[in-house]
């Protein structure tokens, strides 16, 4: 990974689980790097998760890579809902995923401090041109709110289920 640029990102998602609906809101940290491909496809923009650290995503542009990153994050949250028997299990799994750290945390802090001190501006012009900046001392944040609980289908109500969680996509009309 060439010198990546440190970013904060925000993400909010409603996730259905077994008998519950949860609203997840996070302010996370990630690194973005522009990396050369070994084919003729041009550079790739790569988002590397920092908090949460357990994912990455790639695209042909900054927006497309971020869209892929968010879809990946959504897919992971949906997978955690698949595995959870109840809201408490889901909450613990999301917290564990979000709070895991790896060596990219140190790199993120170092790059942010370089940008603060002026010894290293964002490497990429697209990132450098982003007008909104947030002090890197701001902590990542995660909230997981239970919105609907213990809904039973035999009451005639809608029953939340992980099977209702679907990622975005498109298909050819024919």
């Amino acid at each position: 990974m060439n010198s990546p640029d440190p970013l904060f990102f925000s993400h909010r998602e409603s996730v259905e689980g077994n008998g519950f609906v949860a609203a997840i809101s996070m302010r996370g940290r990630c690194l973005v790097a522009r990396e050369q491909r070994d084919d003729d496809a041009g550079d790739a923009w790569v988002f590397y998760g920092v908090q949460p650290c357990g994912l990455s995503a790639e695209g042909d542009s900054l927006p497309s890579a971020f869209a892929e990153f968010r879809e990946s994050l959504k897919d992971i949250l949906f997978g955690l809902a698949d595995d959870a028997q109840n809201f408490d299990q889901f909450r613990l799994a999301v917290e564990a995923f979000f709070n895991q750290a790896d060596s990219d945390t140190d790199l993120w802090l170092r790059r942010a401090e370089e940008i603060r001190s002026g010894s290293g501006e964002p490497v990429d012009q697209t990132v450098s041109s982003l007008s909104q900046r947030l002090l890197h001392e701001n902590k990542p944040a995660l909230s997981i709110d239970l919105k609907i609980a213990n809904v039973l289908a035999d009451d005639g109500n809608y029953e939340p289920s992980p099977s209702n969680n679907v990622t975005s996509g498109f298909r050819v009309a024919a």
């Binding site: 357990g54 994912l55 990455s56 995503a57 892929e68 879809e71 990946s72 897919d75 992971i76 949906f78 997978g79 698949d82 595995d83 564990a96 995923f97 895991q100 790896d102 990622t167 975005s168 996509g169």
Partner: peptide
């Protein structure tokens, strides 16, 4: 798990992409 492989080693977990939505 969905479009990911959940890879675990020594208490660490990574969600490796294996499809694309």
């Amino acid at each position: 798990s969905r479009d990911k492989y959940v890879v675990q080693f020594q208490g660490h977990t990574y969600m490796l992409g294996c499809g694309s939505h």
